[in-house]
């Protein structure tokens, strides 16, 4: 569909035709997405192998990561945010590593494939509603009904459509950004080859590091805001008559927990 450079799987298939089975490189994105998991596991294993009181090296870095991510969760979700640290932190690290994978020559960002980003967004979608029901019980359905109860027949479909639009926007945002960035790098490489093998793509790759980080952070941020909107219990919902919506309102109220 778009311009992309052949990855090492495509090259390997050219060399060993039929060895990996027919057209294996079409599932390149899934393969690379699976390849990221052992890499992250290796990082976690190496950093927690010999725990010391005064951390050095990798353990220091891992502790920094965990501390930053736990601060991120508690500031966005609220006091119960630490329960979601495994989910949000894993999403962030996994997406960031996958985004950066495309910058290694011969490799491909799995997130530049719409199927991978869609599955990631579905994880957030399912987690949001699962924890919504778990934290609030059947009262979670009141979120969908809206504030004046007699408007519920009107508000219910609107809220359902709004909920369904979230995974769509999460999917397309991550996919479009990473795919566009990788395509731009591929175009710059082509231009550089045309101009006599000059590395035109380097400034674009520096920008891509920043984009990878920001997109991973935005995915984790929006996931935590959706979860915060679903799990924060407003016990004074009717008493104060405050408009505590969710969705777009959740985004506005989230910093108040900080």
């Amino acid at each position: 569909m778009s311009l992309e450079l052949p990855g090492w799987l495509a090259v390997a298939e050219e060399v060993f035709i039929g060895y990996f089975g027919p057209s294996y490189h079409e599932s390149e994105a899934v393969f690379h997405a699976a390849l990221v998991i052992p890499l992250l596991l290796l990082f976690v294993f190496l950093s927690t192998r010999r725990l010391e009181k005064i951390p050095t090296g990798l353990q220091n870095f891992a502790e920094l990561l965990v501390e930053l991510l736990s601060k991120f969760c508690t500031s966005l979700i609220g006091p119960h945010g630490l329960a979601f640290l495994p989910l949000i932190g894993a999403l962030f690290l996994y997406i960031f590593t996958m985004n950066m994978f495309g910058l290694i020559p011969g490799f491909k960002s799995p997130t530049s494939n719409v199927n991978v980003t869609c599955s990631l967004a579905l994880v957030t979608f399912v987690a949001t509603h699962y924890y919504g029901f778990r934290y609030q019980g059947m009262g979670y359905l009141k979120h969908f009904a809206g504030e004046p109860l007699w408007l519920a027949p009107l508000m219910f479909p609107i809220h359902i459509v709004g909920e369904l639009a979230r995974p769509l926007s999460l999917t397309l945002r991550l996919y479009g950004n990473i795919m566009g960035e990788d395509t731009a790098i591929a175009v710059f490489i082509g231009m550089g080859i045309g101009a006599g093998y000059l590395p035109f793509q380097f400034p674009m790759m520096a920008l891509a590091v920043f984009t990878s980080f920001v997109q991973a952070m935005i995915f984790a941020l929006l996931s935590s805001i959706y979860i915060s909107g679903a799990t924060t219990v407003h016990e004074h919902h009717a008493a104060h008559g405050e408009e505590h919506g969710h969705g777009a309102h959740g985004a506005a109220q989230a910093p108040a927990h900080a």
């Binding site: 569909m1 945002r173 950004n177 795919m179 920001v214 929006l222």
Partner: peptide
């Protein structure tokens, strides 16, 4: 500044996703 920055990045993400929709359609 911290809270404003968080809210700003969320808003920027929502604005940017609309442009990204057009980019996806352009690629299609």
């Amino acid at each position: 500044a911290g809270q404003i920055q968080t809210a700003m990045i969320i808003g920027l993400a929502f604005i940017e996703s609309l442009v990204i929709y057009v980019l996806v359609i352009a690629f299609l």
